[in-house]
């Protein structure tokens, strides 16, 4: 549905994005993950035909975003990060205006607007001017606006930014409900959000693609911990010595806590297999008490930071 090849955008000397390549299948939800200023918005602006790329190509639904921009724009729904709306218009008036521009047949405009307002929960705001709405409701207007022409491709730039937790959950479930027929690209710098919604994630930093994979794969690839945390009851120095004596140990840290059950974190040099059992055996052999034992899981945040910093160096 979306094919992006070697996309580069320069702003003067500064580079927006550099040689970005990826593709999205029909019906897929793709997450764009990256710190602020990584190039997420730039990529989305190119895909939505707002700005042309310096080099490289991007095709949406088979149409080139530069050569065939009108055909792409007819098939796309876009919600920019700042949710720019005409504050001096009433909600239905605005949606009708957008529907008209986005080629919704004239006779269907009214029913389409009513239907969407109900779907995003705006019906009771019909008499209000957009300028009077709270951030959460504006976000819904923005979402309704992007959906008005029943687009094949939906591009959402940070759709939950600035919302309260309840609204975030609502918008998220709304987006999830849209999946299926539609292809969705959404960007975020919040990891749990992306992993909750998306089937596939692109990690982007400093304008470059750092990783593309499913959230599960990204996690399993890296998550199998290289660290094991254990609370052990035993003489501290002996315990540390025993832990160091294990095979493949890189580091042992002692935490603070009660004397008779100090926490230790053992780091192994090879993180591809679970080492918990190995630690357990070592403790039990010495007949010390084992209160707690678990691999330290890497959160998506850790993975993200790991990928971004590793590649950076």
């Amino acid at each position: 549905m979306i094919e992006v090849e070697h996309l580069t955008k320069k702003y003067g000397e500064a580079r927006g994005i550099n040689d970005v390549t990826f593709s999205v299948e029909k019906g897929e939800i793709l997450g764009f993950l990256g710190p602020n200023g990584a190039g997420k918005t730039t990529t989305m602006r190119i895909l939505t035909c707002f700005m042309p790329a310096t080099s490289g190509t991007a095709r949406v639904a088979g149409y080139d975003v530069f050569e065939d921009s009108l055909n792409v724009r007819r098939r796309i729904g876009y919600l920019p990060e700042t949710v720019p709306l005409y504050t001096d218009m009433q909600v239905p008036t605005y949606l009708k205006f957008v529907a008209g521009l986005k080629d919704v047949p004239y006779r269907e405009i009214n029913s389409r607007v009513g239907e969407l307002m109900e779907r995003v929960g705006l019906t009771h705001m019909a008499h209000k001017f957009i300028g009077e709405l709270s951030k959460g409701y504006r976000q819904r207007v923005g979402l309704a606006q992007s959906l008005i022409n029943d687009p094949e491709v939906l591009v959402l730039d940070e759709p939950t930014i600035g919302l309260d937790p309840k609204q975030i959950i609502e918008i998220r479930s709304l987006i999830k409900g849209l999946a299926g027929e539609r292809t969705i690209i959404l960007s975020s710098h919040i990891l749990p959000e992306v992993s909750a919604i998306c089937k596939r994630i692109i990690i982007i930093d400093e304008g470059r693609v750092k990783a593309i994979d499913t959230p599960e794969n990204l996690t399993t690839q890296l998550r199998v911990s290289d660290k094991v945390r254990a609370r052990i009851g035993g003489p501290k120095e002996d315990v540390v010595k025993a832990l160091w004596a294990m095979e493949g140990v890189k580091n042992v840290e002692t935490g603070a806590g009660a004397e008779d059950s100090l926490p230790y974190v053992v780091e192994f040099s090879d993180g591809t297999i679970d080492r918990s059992s190995q630690v357990a055996r070592a403790i039990v052999e010495k007949r010390w008490d084992l209160y707690e034992l678990m691999p330290v899981k890497m959160s998506l945040e850790d993975i993200f930071i790991k990928i971004v910093t590793e590649e950076g160096n």
Binding site: C49, F50, I76, P80, V98, L101, Q145
Partner: peptide
């Protein structure tokens, strides 16, 4: 709003 307007067909 120009950004949105220019991404409409």
């Amino acid at each position: 709003t120009m950004e949105l307007l220019l991404t409409f067909p």
